[in-house]
């Protein structure tokens, strides 16, 4: 990891929901063009941590952050940072597919339009490129004007990925992106993640340890707000260094 270029560097991050400290002194580096997976039991702070990486927690009242999150060496919690622009660079995909109740085309064109692109040809190009990157183009190219609510859950999730990609982010944060999908739709997303890491840095929270093992290059294990171990995925699943990690991944936790 030492020799890799870092996209995200987190230093001594604490996070509070009111009085409750959800993350304690987290320091972690995310290498560029790699998939980093966060695993851990429910309530361990992994999703909270993911959301600190594009300041999604700002939207929750009573939260507080200490420490710093550097993306491309810039602290995203600095007062000068434009949060809308930040979230354009750091895209996000959620657990349940959440397309807008609009056409497939409009779902993907929405972001670029919001960021000021009006040229129809340019928008067409972005929509096609994003849908192709999300491995959805061939399935929807003949019904781009149809409602996004009419495609399958797996397709909707890939549409949400296309929507995130349409504003040309650097980083893609994924919060359990396949937990609502069947195994085939899951396999498509996992395959897609493998392709997307060539262009993007991907951070994924997953409840499925097998998924983390299959798709990630690095894995970080969280427990009760602490980062217990962060290493090459192969090391985590072959010979974890921390007993707590071993107990969790072998199912002997608790």
């Amino acid at each position: 990891m030492e020799n890799l270029e870092k996209k995200i560097i987190v230093n001594d991050l604490d996070f509070y929901y009111g009085d409750f400290q959800a993350l304690e002194n987290i320091s972690l580096e995310v290498p560029v063009n790699k998939v980093t997976a966060f695993i851990g039991p429910s309530g361990c702070g992994k999703s909270t941590f993911l959301r600190t990486l594009n300041r999604m927690n700002d939207l929750i009242a009573g939260t507080k952050v200490d420490g710093e999150v550097l993306i491309d060496s810039e602290n995203i919690y600095h007062e000068c940072v434009d949060v809308v622009n930040l979230r354009k660079r750091i895209g996000m995909v959620f657990q349940d597919p959440n397309p807008f109740p609009k056409s497939i085309y409009e779902n993907v064109a929405y972001g670029p339009k919001a960021h000021g692109i009006k040229d129809k040809d340019k928008l067409d190009q972005i929509v096609e490129k994003s849908l192709r990157q999300a491995a959805l183009w061939d399935e929807v190219k003949d019904r781009l004007d149809k409602s996004a609510m009419g495609i399958s859950g797996g397709q909707q999730q890939r549409l949400c990925i296309a929507r995130a990609l349409s504003v040309n982010p650097d980083v893609l944060l994924m919060d359990e992106p396949t937990s609502a999908l069947d195994p085939i739709a899951t396999a498509k997303i996992e395959d897609l993640i493998e392709d997307l890491k060539k262009e993007y840095t991907i951070v994924i929270v997953t409840h499925s340890m097998q998924q983390a093992a299959r798709i990630s290059d690095y894995t970080a294990f969280f427990l009760m707000g602490d980062l217990i171990e962060h290493s090459l995925t192969q090391n985590i699943f072959e010979k974890p260094e921390n007993k707590k990690t071993e107990d969790y991944i072998t199912g002997r936790f608790g």
Binding site: Q210, E238, T250
Partner: peptide
């Protein structure tokens, strides 16, 4: 059972 780590070894 998809064993990992020590179980797998």
């Amino acid at each position: 059972q998809q064993p990992v780590a020590k179980d797998l070894r």
